[in-house]
Design a protein around this nucleic acid. Structure first.
Lengths: 194, 194
DNA sequence: CGTCGATGTATCGAGCCGATACATCCCGAG
DNA sequence: CTCGGGATGTATCGGCTCGATACATCGACG
């Protein structure tokens, strides 16, 4: 229906292009470096996404000054348009429930420095309750079928539970840090200790 | 091209049906309970999969004795055919490189009690090297772009790396256990301590 | 008696991946 | 010097899977 439920890639592209104009190949490398172990986008999604973004007028091809073209292997450099910047701000500000799903959370987090403190907190807490819901449901299901499971499955469950619990603890720390930072206002986060 | 690269669901269904005949709804519940935090299949994949399996003759509809039908809400109970059992054994035995991808590993692991010790070890080790590859590549990329990243992204990287490292350690323990078990032969794993 | 939630089967649109196909550039081995 | 392999670069196709949705029946509770 509405465009933009699972379109994490759009956010990722827009966010990356906000820093500096890039072409597809380089964009993908940066994106995957940025997201680390959390996600890795493929060309099969990236290029169609770029095309769609272009059609929506959110990005545009950047014409290098003709004199600059030297040995140039043909590459298409995209930059954010004014509409694109606006759209990016919208996505960063609105951050609905989709932001705390597995596939989206990492991307949103990766652009936290462009996100308002209030929204950061909302995403962090949304993610946490999302995980706690799943924890509950899995624990309940596990309690009901515990005796039917073999030791391998039990070990799988144990490990899965443990790593999600660990993620919740991580979120708790982040949330506490955010809260502390917002109570001590005017401390700019971008240039804190460096 | 060839059918059966990413078809983890087929394995999952076949494996679940090996225990006892089931209908779609119940099958999904059990599957998601079995896999816990690792995966959750949806109807949108399950029903087409059941249809495909049926068309391949790997599963069949089970006709309850007419006298047994009482209040019966219409449900379709599937059971494994002889070909299905064969196929399941094949999938459990062959376990190619796809078995150690994120989406497949959990499913394969969940059916380890039906898997030969040798294959278990291969899957565990394959998974481990898969993760170590990614660890390497992410660490390399991180080293090259460390200074360009803000503190949020850095924290994301740190957490991602840490949880994967933890998973590698988990795999190491499992591998060690498997090795110990195989050196002390004839200890049947199915009824060890219960 | 109504309706709400669980049970149950099924489909559709859309996103994303993996593989693949090309073409050019650079660099080192022969 | 030349040849080939590996990185750079753009692009598409098939197919799997999800999320939403639709529909129907059952049991329980007020």
């Amino acid at each position: 229906m509405a465009a933009g439920q699972g379109r994490v890639l759009e956010l990722a592209v827009l966010g990356s292009l906000h820093e500096t104009p890039l072409h597809g190949y380089e964009l993908r490398k940066r994106l995957n470096a940025l997201l680390g172990m959390f996600r890795a986008f493929s060309y099969g999604s990236l290029y169609p996404c770029l095309r769609s973004l272009l059609a929506q007028g959110l990005i545009a091809e950047e014409q290098p000054a003709p004199s600059t073209i030297v040995g140039g292997r043909s590459k298409i450099v995209y930059k954010l348009t004014a509409e694109g910047k606006e759209r990016l701000q919208d996505m960063l500000t609105q951050a609905g429930p989709s932001a705390w799903e597995d596939e989206s959370f990492g991307v949103h987090f990766a652009f936290f420095r462009h996100t308002e403190a209030e929204v950061r907190l909302r995403i962090l807490e949304g993610r946490r309750s999302r995980l706690e819901e799943r924890l509950d449901s899995v624990r309940t299901a596990l309690a009901r079928t515990r005796e039917r499971l073999d030791s391998y499955t039990l070990e799988l469950q144990r490990h899965g539970l443990e790593s999600v619990e660990r993620e919740v603890r991580w979120l708790n720390e982040l949330i506490a840090t955010e809260r502390r930072a917002s109570e001590r206002p005017e401390r700019d986060t971008t240039s804190s200790d460096e």
